[in-house]
């Protein structure tokens, strides 16, 4: 069976690429500290030596639209083009092409349907910065095949937080039962407190530092029950109007498991939002 060699959860800040690649005179003052943190975070994936990446993210109204909106969607394609015109325009993100691990996509779809998740699929999926940001931060060579899994955290009605956790648990079971000798890492990105297009946007830090502190604690300690006891679709409006992206972190807590303490935890308080980085090694990691 395949081995789950790392579980990684992260924010996906689209400004990182530009901040880290701009010429010195244009780099923002926080860029060096940010690059150093990302370099350390990247090493946590490199150490796990994965062959395949399962990438959990959320389309930001790029390919998926309100006339046909899936709640959970698995890409099943040999290749994925990546990043869109408006991400190039606003964030300076590069166009990319990633290979797909199509047999794992097929396995997750078949077994996921049988496990009670009516997963949508796409045979021609262009992925956006929710998946490419962690490629840029964690695996900039972009040389590993992926299985993209999109969640709807964006267009109500949304699945409830518990459903994200359950899907995470199922993804882990499916990766670990996949008949393959591959080493698989599951990487998912979301948000802590975040406001976009509302009165609390682009402040000196995230809109709700207290929520961020609690969120980091829930994730780092694997406190799924504590998190589920406080987080609902209604409550997530309070820390910021885009905070439903936190449910992708909850999905990753489901992958990591109840009570699973993260082996690596880091965060960075930026303007606008707090960055947070977590890695678990379900089977340890060789030194």
């Amino acid at each position: 069976m395949a081995e789950l060699v790392a579980v990684i959860a992260s924010t996906h800040h689209p400004f990182y690429y530009r901040a880290s690649t701009a010429p010195p005179e244009e780099r923002p003052p926080f860029a060096d500290a940010w690059v150093a943190k990302i370099a350390a975070f990247r090493e946590t994936l490199t150490r796990a030596n994965p062959d395949v990446l399962v990438m959990v993210g959320s389309d930001h109204f790029h390919q998926l639209w309100l006339d046909n909106m899936p709640q959970f969607l698995v890409g099943k394609a040999p290749f994925y083009d990546a990043n869109f015109y408006n991400e190039e325009r606003e964030f300076g993100l590069p166009r990319m092409l990633l290979r797909g691990q199509e047999d794992l996509s097929a396995y997750i779809l078949r077994e996921g349907l049988d496990a009670g998740f009516d997963l949508a699929f796409s045979n021609e999926l262009r992925i956006d910065h929710s998946v490419t940001c962690p490629i840029i931060t964690l695996r900039p060579e972009a040389d590993l095949p992926i299985v993209p899994i999109y969640t709807n955290i964006f267009a109500p009605p949304l699945p409830r937080p518990k459903r994200f956790v359950e899907l995470g648990r199922t993804i882990r079971q499916l990766v670990e039962s996949w008949p393959s000798d591959k080493r698989v890492a599951v990487i998912g990105t979301g948000h802590l407190s975040l406001e976009l297009g509302g009165p609390r946007q682009f402040g000196p830090h995230g809109p709700d530092p207290e929520f961020d502190r609690k969120a980091v604690e829930w994730i780092a300690s694997g406190d799924i029950d504590g998190c589920l006891s406080e987080v609902t679709l209604d409550s997530l409006w309070e820390p910021g109007n885009a905070t439903h992206g936190f449910m992708d972190f909850m999905l990753m807590m489901g992958v990591a498991g109840e009570g699973a303490k993260a082996d690596y935890v880091d965060s960075l308080d930026l303007f606008h939002t707090m960055e947070a980085y977590f890695t678990w090694y379900p089977n340890g990691v060789t030194a």
Binding site: L66, A155, P156, P157, E195, G197, G198, P199, R200, Q201, F202, G203, W237, E238, N241, F271
Partner: peptide, 23 residues
Amino acid sequence: LAFQKEYGRRLQHFSLPYPDIAT
């Protein structure tokens, strides 16, 4: 970010719950 900050300031009179965005 000057435009983004002005945008936020012009929305300051809104408080929770914000207008419903469900379609």
